[in-house]
Design a protein around this nucleic acid. Sequence first.
DNA 1: TCGTTTTCTGACCGTATGGTCAGGGTCGAG
DNA 2: CTCGACCCTGACCATACGGTCAGAAAACGA
Lengths: 212, 212
Amino acid sequence: MSAPERLTKRNAIRRENERVILAAAEKVFAEAGFGGATMQLIADMAGLPKANLHYYFATKEELYRKVVQQIFEIWLHAADVFDNAPGPVEGIGAYIDAKMEISRRHPFGSKVWASEVMHGAPVIQDYLETTLRDWTEGRARVIQRWVDEGKMAPVDPRHLLYMLWATTQHYADFGHQIETLNGGKPLSDRQWKAAKDSVKTIILRGIAAVPS
Amino acid sequence: MSAPERLTKRNAIRRENERVILAAAEKVFAEAGFGGATMQLIADMAGLPKANLHYYFATKEELYRKVVQQIFEIWLHAADVFDNAPGPVEGIGAYIDAKMEISRRHPFGSKVWASEVMHGAPVIQDYLETTLRDWTEGRARVIQRWVDEGKMAPVDPRHLLYMLWATTQHYADFGHQIETLNGGKPLSDRQWKAAKDSVKTIILRGIAAVPS
DNA sequence: TCGTTTTCTGACCGTATGGTCAGGGTCGAG
DNA sequence: CTCGACCCTGACCATACGGTCAGAAAACGA
């Protein structure tokens, strides 16, 4: 049991500084990678002296780990829509919407996660083997049930999940490439909607999802 | 005009060393990122003294640039199948096959490319704005033609291309995650085939491609 | 107000990194 | 055989990095 946090000025300062540091770290890790990021750069972006970072986060690894955990939590919650859906059109449709929205709102976190996994998940391997594995098996069962109930074509649930992750996260991880191919401009509201619709249309038709 | 390369022992040595160095660099850059990779690590993996690397490649950036160019070339050639195809079933089907095969054979290169783009393409931005942009517009026109000819559903060619890139490269870039979810074992021949088939089936049905 | 705890930071340190270079070895053309 | 061009490498250097620490400043509880 942790003691209930009182609303003192000290607690406010601590919370605010941790927030600022984590936001700066997320951006710097995303743009430079773990190895390329420096505590000095993060400190400058957070507007704090470097030594102050080490007061809140003992090491670079600890700070990095917190950043990775954040995006992972966000993704896990995004899948709540999956559970109580009557069928694939609602469930997978809403999941695509949610993940596309996250790609738009949290592109840095997505990149940090991608980088971490690409490098062999040196700091969050345990998450992959426990939380993520359980999560994946659970959703795979839901999809398999939909298949068995004739609500969609018989596809391998695993590969469908990979496809959902890949297509949605691509808009965050490869956002720079997409922006360049879009004439150097970020996608507009309209274009984001078109992206969402394209992904949903192709995938839902691809799995022959029938409305409930 | 470059002089025709004679088959002397010197040329053989140079070519072999450059090959070994590039292979080692590709792996190290993929596993550690540009910032995390060290010339010493690459040298060790190549079995050469560090100073020797600097004899063939003046700087770390130059070596890195060559690695990125390599995978880019491979991907460009993979799209040849696209051009003379009579319709989307053959063209896109073959393109998926080719890119999945590359993800399997060149996972390191794919990761290096992904990392480079994620970090804002600091060294290959010019490629994105010239070669890749032209390439993309060309294939988008081909897809649009297929749509106009009624050979597939009216989808946005750009977003379809992004989906093809995302799904195929995911098997290389997130290979570690997939492997972990596969019980810690790399995908078998059979599983790779299932992956290919899943991707092809869902996407081709998703765009309502009609056989020519 | 006073003593204690927490927050803050400039200055510092050991190490690792990218890159250099002088000098020795090897190869090939004539 | 000879000489010039190319190949190789141990030792070295300047710099930048993650992390430490002593002590000042601020906040807090009583």
